[in-house]
């Protein structure tokens, strides 16, 4: 249609040869891009429309009788706490593992380790949940007691210590193990692609291996590690089964990590309550899901912003 106007344009722009292969590929790529946006928009639309009754309902009608804010708030705190513990524990560990595999381990051990770590990602989360409940929680009881005895001046460890070990701390550690393979797999991939050119530049300046990693590998891999951490965080925020199994939940919002009375997380609360929920209860649960959606989106945008702030220095140019 626009081609009919072509004679008025300069001849060089008149005929851009478009080969069928190009057109098919461009169409497929564009289609995929649009598809993912449509899915995202569909999910968002569903969440908003289903959450609307809860958002507009009066406080007394919401389960708990004190309004949506006080219903969701403990869950938000619980979700963020568990995810942050997981991220803080898993990220340095994952970076260490990735560096060991890419730059320190003998080649054969490195390959084997890579497989083992990837295997962690294949374990179903319900298994992690039972492991956390049956193995890790009892093992962590003495540690809980110790923190309550020695670190109670930090609000996170105010106590009293849980006798069962079924606490936010245990959940955070289980989540850390679960997201470890995601972060370390991505970190390993970006670290192994740090250009030999820059690694040699560092070595030729007289860098030790660790200094070489600091100068040429970590800065190069930083955005990849952040991306991996965000993927891990996404999984930790949304993890349902493991949390539901370990935590008793139902407590008030608290940052005290080692007591038995702690808030649940949004995802596990939805999973536990949904079967029995009716009417506005369903809308309330979906509204809490909407909150989770918004949190995840915000965290990801924040991470993007952090990565892009120093885009000039990323080495991509």
């Amino acid at each position: 249609m626009t081609a009919t106007k072509a004679p008025t344009e300069p001849p060089s722009q008149q005929r851009v040869v478009r080969r069928p292969g190009d057109r098919v590929f461009a169409g497929a790529a564009r289609g995929s891009g649009i598809f993912i946006l449509l899915v995202l928009a569909g999910v968002a639309a569903f969440l908003i429309s289903e959450a609307l009754p809860a958002l507009t309902a009066s406080s007394e009608e919401i389960p708990g009788g004190e309004g949506l804010g006080s219903y969701v708030w403990p869950l938000i705190v619980g979700t963020l706490l568990g995810a942050v513990i997981a991220l803080v524990v898993a990220t340095p560990l994952a970076v260490g593992i990735a560096l060991y595999i890419t730059y320190y381990a003998p080649r054969r051990i490195a390959a084997a380790m890579g497989y083992v770590i990837d295997l962690l990602a294949a374990i179903p989360s319900v298994v992690y949940g039972f492991w956390g409940l049956a193995v890790l929680a009892p093992k962590l009881v003495p540690f809980h007691q110790w923190t309550a005895d020695n670190l109670s001046w930090i609000p996170l460890f105010a106590g009293p210590a849980s006798a069962s070990g079924r606490t936010m701390l245990t959940v955070g550690l289980v989540l850390a193990v679960m997201i470890l393979p995601i972060i370390s797999a991505i970190a390993r991939e970006v670290f192994s692609q740090a250009p030999a050119l820059h690694r040699e530049a560092a070595l030729a300046l007289g860098a030790t291996r660790w200094e070489m990693i600091k100068m040429a590998v970590l800065p190069y891999g930083k955005s990849g590690v952040i991306a991996g951490a965000m993927l891990g965080l996404g999984r930790a925020l949304g993890e349902t089964m493991a949390v539901a199994i370990i935590l008793s939940g139902g407590g008030a919002a608290t940052i005290n990590l080692i007591t038995s009375s702690n808030p649940s997380t949004i995802a596990s609360n939805i999973a536990l309550r949904f079967p029995e929920a009716t009417g506005l209860g369903v809308n309330t649960l979906i509204a809490s899901g909407l909150v989770l959606f918004v949190i995840t989106l915000a965290v990801n945008m924040l991470a993007r912003w952090v990565v892009n702030r120093r885009a000039d220095f990323s080495g991509a140019n």
Partner: peptide
């Protein structure tokens, strides 16, 4: 390698560092 410096075939300034930091990269190592 600290006594014998090297310049490579392809220019390889550290892309994550400023010009200033590139120059003193070796000195920072010491």
């Amino acid at each position: 390698r600290r006594q014998i410096g090297m310049v490579f075939q392809r220019p390889n300034p550290f892309p994550t560092m400023s010009i200033y930091d590139n120059v003193i990269a070796g000195n920072r190592l010491n």
